[in-house]
């Protein structure tokens, strides 16, 4: 996020950090106990699904907090139009976790914008741990920024041709004050306040740089995909749970480092 500020814990309880091989690469959002919404390009087909870690209840990337939970990925569903009609079109992914999220004051789901959402006169925010300057500075704490929506015709005009920004996309950004999303915010949310209920209207997708005033950030338009999201949430089986015998073995395995930590803390 460029031009934003540190977010308070619990202010964006649906924010997710997607890690790949131990590093934050993208954002995402909690949409229910088992499902995360993110960008398809964060989960490109050549990536190993087992190398992903999903963190919820996180504000400072350096520390696991009291509300932080960690999850492995069970399944990734990329939208069938991803990269079909546009190099980054259909840039949306559903990520099913191996186990369920425990909701708390700091970990809650966001609402998905319905197909007929009216985006006039709404206040919208983006959040993420992406770069805070084009020079590559990364934040420790989750950043938030208020961004105005930009109409599709204006955005198409700014990008030079209608085909560059398609109807499954949405543009937002404060082009006068250089407040926008940047690399590492991908997959994260654009959320708007509708009478104290927060609806996700965008998924951070792409843009031409982060600080060129004439090129606002482009998001996947969530309302365009909401029926697809709803279909897979309702029709995908829950992940199979470990057998009791296996659970006992896992418990025995993790108890060793926990015991070691307890001993070390006494030294």
């Amino acid at each position: 996020i460029v031009g934003g500020m540190d977010a308070l814990e619990g202010k964006w309880p649906w924010q997710v950090s997607v890690h790949y091989r131990g590093f934050h690469i993208c954002g995402g959002t909690i949409i229910d106990e088992y499902w995360i919404l993110s960008a398809a390009h964060c989960f490109d087909r050549d990536k190993n699904i087992e190398a992903f870690d999903i963190y919820v209840g996180l504000v400072d990337l350096r520390f696991v907090g009291n509300h932080t939970q960690w999850f492995e990925v069970n399944k990734v569903i990329l939208h069938p139009t991803y990269e079909v009609y546009h190099p980054v079109g259909g840039d949306i992914a559903l990520v099913q976790l191996k186990s369920r999220i425990v909701f708390s004051d700091s970990v809650l789901p966001v609402c998905i914008a319905p197909p007929d959402v009216n985006l006039h006169n709404v206040t919208c925010w983006s959040t993420g741990w992406g770069l805070i300057s084009p020079q590559g500075r990364v934040p420790e704490k989750l950043q938030e920024v208020r961004v105005p929506l930009i109409s599709l015709p204006l955005c198409q005009l700014l990008y030079g041709h209608p085909s560059h920004v398609m109807s499954d996309m949405l543009c937002a950004g404060d082009i006068w004050n250089v407040r926008t999303v940047c690399e590492g915010d991908s997959g994260g949310p654009l959320v708007c306040d509708f009478n104290h209920t927060w609806l996700q209207v965008g998924v951070v997708s792409w843009g031409r740089g982060c600080t060129y005033p004439m090129y606002p950030a482009v998001y996947a338009r969530v309302s365009y995909f909401s029926k697809w999201i709803q279909y897979y949430r309702e029709h995908t089986p829950l992940p199979s749970q470990p057998l009791p015998a296996l659970s006992l073995m896992v418990g025995a395995t993790v108890s060793v480092p926990v015991t070691m930590l307890a001993v070390l803390s006494m030294l």
Binding site: K11, P13, L58, R62, N66, T68, R100, V102, D105
Partner: peptide, 27 residues
């Protein structure tokens, strides 16, 4: 970078909580 740690100390609420609501309100 956060470390891999499957912990869940969070206070459980009804899993069917309403979406889009948070417990702290901005001004």
């Amino acid at each position: 970078v956060a470390h891999r740690r499957p912990l869940s100390e969070a206070r459980a609420l009804n899993p069917h909580v309403a979406c889009g609501h948070r417990y702290i309100q901005g001004k």
